[in-house]
């Protein structure tokens, strides 16, 4: 029973983090129909930034969060203008973006290998074990999960309490109608792109904590996890992403407690995804069921 409780809490902690990882990706897809295969690599890039600060500058790696945000915004702005206008003109934006971002992911992976080498790097733990509900959890995991909550709250405020957030949601719901009612799609798209990238790198600063370490190839796995999370919670629905993250986190954690299920841990998110989309073809929080 004690183990069960431990797994639940651990699942929630990881679930929050998964939601954090997924949310930036969902923003890009929801607004621009971009399939960002480089998302996980951006996340890992953020992680390396934190690593550099901790190891080279000898300051707490969490400083990477405020420092990475402006850098990510600028980077996002540049990448947006280099790629998105052309992609949006493509016959099929979804697939065209898939190729372009696959290329970007290769480039990022190569750059990270050149700068940081191929070895796994880890960050020193930010402190001793933290006690929650009578059991000990690694401080790194608790802190990361705790930081995911305000990040998700900030995005919520952006989407639901600002004018541009309203416009963003309008574009996500129906771009045609949004345009017809006077929404400036490009402005929405630039900001969504920049914020999406910033969320990726910020979540990234926590990955070395959550995953025990990072290496240049960590990104591709994270991309798939992020996609799984946002599909379960419906594309274009930020709140759904949080729920999707929690579901994946809980299911994975619980499967680790069961004999014979441990070897299937990696499959759990995929099975969850298949079950969800077969029952509800547009995810748990899809507004409309897509035509068959």
């Amino acid at each position: 029973m004690q183990l069960f409780e431990y797994a639940i809490v651990n699942g929630v902690l990881f679930g929050l983090f998964y939601g954090f990882i997924g949310i930036g990706l969902n923003l890009l897809f929801g607004v621009m129909r971009l399939v960002n295969l480089a998302h996980g690599d951006l996340v890992v890039f953020g992680g390396y930034l934190g690593y550099s600060l901790a190891v080279d500058a000898h300051i707490n790696s969490l400083w990477a969060i405020p420092l990475s945000i402006p850098a990510a915004l600028v980077f996002g702005f540049l990448v947006y203008h280099a790629t998105v206008p052309r992609l949006r003109r493509a016959v099929d934006t979804e697939t065209a973006s898939l190729i372009v971002f696959f290329g970007i992911s290769q480039v990022l992976e190569a750059l990270m290998t050149m700068i940081y080498g191929a070895n796994q790097v880890t960050l020193p733990s930010p402190g001793g074990p933290v006690s929650l509900f009578g059991q000990d959890y690694p401080a790194s995991v608790v802190i990361s999960a705790a930081l995911s909550v305000p990040a998700l709250a900030l995005l919520y405020l952006y989407l639901y309490r600002t004018r541009i957030g309203l416009a963003t949601r309008a574009v996500m719901a129906d771009e045609d109608e949004a345009v017809a009612s006077g929404v400036r799609v490009r402005r929405v798209a630039v900001w969504a792109f920049m914020i999406g990238v910033a969320f990726a790198t910020t979540a990234g600063t926590l990955t070395a904590f959550m995953l025990g370490g990072i290496n240049p190839t960590t990104g591709s796995g994270l991309t798939i996890t992020a996609f799984t999370v946002i599909i379960i919670g419906s594309l274009g629905n930020p709140l759904g992403t949080v729920v999707g993250g929690l579901l994946v986190g809980l299911a994975s954690s619980l499967s680790l407690t069961q004999a014979y299920a441990t070897e299937w841990t990696a499959v759990v998110p995929y099975v969850l995804l298949l079950v969800v989309v077969l029952v509800r073809p547009s995810g748990l929080f899809g507004a409309t069921v897509r035509r068959a």
């Binding site: 431990y6 651990n10 370490g213 407690t257 441990t262």
Partner: peptide, 9 residues
């Protein structure tokens, strides 16, 4: 990569 639950088990 997440060994926390496994270690508890």
């Amino acid at each position: 990569s997440d060994y926390s639950t496994l270690v508890q088990s």
